[in-house]
Amino acid sequence: MEEYLNKGIKEVITQFPAVDKILEENGIGCGPCSVGTCLLKDIVAIHDLPEDDQRVMMARIAKVIYPDKVIPLPPVTKKKETGPKELKYSPPMKALVDEHVLIKRWLALIPAVLEHLDLSSEEGRNLILQGVDFIRSYADRYHHAKEEDVLFGYFDPNLDILKVIIQDHIQGRGHVQAIVEGVERQDKGAVTEHLTAYRNLLTGHIKKEDEILWPWMERNLTMTQIGELYAKFQETDQRMGLSTEKFENFITNLEKKYKA
């Protein structure tokens, strides 16, 4: 079993497709992941399933991999529970969760923006470029920078899930560049393709962070680290001097425009 616990999940699923279904039944959606290099043992630990569920899931996976053998199972990888179970975000992590809310509102607007896409008019081009400014300034420079420059520094950079998240950021920046070039060429097809791809990418990305990465990080941060994170986020906010009100207004106005 040890051998497979130390293998990338994509490799395990490719070899044993039934494992994908077992993971999915436990709320672990690794199947569609485009990277899939996270080790099975890390995935099991990071999802922090209830002890009994984790034991049953591992037994089922072992049965798929070794149908004719009785395999000793690894110990349940859970921290000793010393307090209430429900996860409550600390102030710095909650700030990141809250920033997702505005980004998700923008992602929800993208289909309507594309439906009314008009690159032949200056107004139409400006709307897309305002969206690009929101993505680059708020979602990327303001939000992703806090993750990459501060938060991730508290964790092992070799963790596959961090590599996946950073890869998403890089891929997102590529789509945004392609959107800008599409606007310059007034290429409706390219803008539609890359804005849609960006929306799909970020939707999955936020889901990974909200449901897996951040709860796991919250559980593993010490009180000292939480205090440091909080101070560093405040420094970042002050240094950037970004007015979030401008972006909130941009989103609110778009919502009024398309939902009216």
């Binding site: 010393t82 307090g83 975000y89 909650k94 909080y230 405040q234």
Partner: peptide, 21 residues
Amino acid sequence: RKVPIKYLVVGLQGEILQEEW
């Protein structure tokens, strides 16, 4: 200044009843 503040409520027999920010 602002700092993260957490509170824990302890039961009479030593159990953690509540942990909040």
